[in-house]
Design a protein around this nucleic acid. Structure first.
Length: 255
DNA sequence: ATGGCTCGTGTAACGAGA
């Protein structure tokens, strides 16, 4: 199974690129974040025409997540049952025996803000819920825009980013707590080129200068990590015209 | 020091992202 995650920053704008990318990268499962569209406007027909089923949880203007799959999707869950949330940030399902949880973690905006507190509470509740899910599904993948660069090597300029949102110690601690419950960062299971990132600022030629962060992740339960044979970030669509600011992350699983 | 771009909304700026 090939599983991928991509923050598309508006599915309406990016749909042609999603279809183009799937044509070149026919993954089994593609998790999307920031679809920014209500469910009644989700482009289901186009996605089905490309050979994928889809489940989605969207809202107007902000957030929104979806899972595209070549294979049957069962036991769909929307949102974290342990955390009341107006924002559509989680969708999960079982596909080919793998529990897939697609997450769009809050950005946090600024250290000390209400949004930052919400981010940390959200992550704590996510960890509690995933702990329960792991008991029922030993093959589990938590994937998405986790909005945390877990280590300094995931940041183009750690000094410039020091103490700011996405790299702060409380956020990194929350990321480690996800590792404490057995989740493995698929990207770090393998030798990787230095300065590999998944997001680059639209401004100031961020991509051209590789001023990026690795904030999109595929985290695997221990059983699944043992069956992971590769994890890469595909920079190609970031070079396209009118790109998302994020690039897809792909993992290959021997399941 | 700040903002620098790209979304949606809605049709002008503005909030939000990261």
């Amino acid at each position: 199974m090939k599983i991928a995650t991509w923050n598309v920053n508006s599915l309406k704008v990016r749909l042609p690129q999603v279809l183009e990318w799937l044509k070149a990268n026919p993954v089994d499962v593609l998790c999307l974040q920031e679809t920014k569209t209500t469910d009644d406007k989700f482009p289901l027909a186009e996605i089905e025409a490309a050979g994928y089923q889809a489940i989605f949880a969207g809202q107007k203007t902000y957030n929104g997540v979806a899972i595209l799959s070549k294979h049957p999707i069962t036991d769909v869950v929307k949102n974290n049952p342990r955390f009341a949330d107006e924002q559509q940030r989680i969708i999960g399902a079982t596909i080919d025996g793998v529990r897939v949880v697609c997450a769009y973690v809050p950005n946090g905006q600024e250290i000390g803000s209400d949004k930052f507190a919400y981010k940390l509470q959200w992550l704590e509740a996510l960890k509690d819920w995933i702990t329960e899910e792991e008991k029922q599904h030993e093959a589990l993948a938590l994937v998405g825009d986790l909005n945390i660069a877990p280590e300094d090597r995931d940041v183009h300029d750690p000094a410039a980013w020091d103490g700011s949102v996405l790299v702060s110690e409380p956020e990194r601690e929350a990321f480690r707590h996800l590792q404490d419950i057995g989740l493995k960062d698929a990207f770090r299971l393998f030798e990787q080129p230095a300065k590999t990132y998944s997001w680059w600022d639209y401004r100031q030629l961020g991509f051209q200068k590789n001023k990026g962060l690795r904030i999109d992740h595929i985290l695997l339960s221990e059983k699944l990590a043992q069956r992971c044979t590769a994890c890469t970030i595909d920079r190609t669509p970031r070079k396209w015209q009118q790109p998302s600011d994020h690039a897809p992350v792909i993992a290959e699983l021997n399941v």
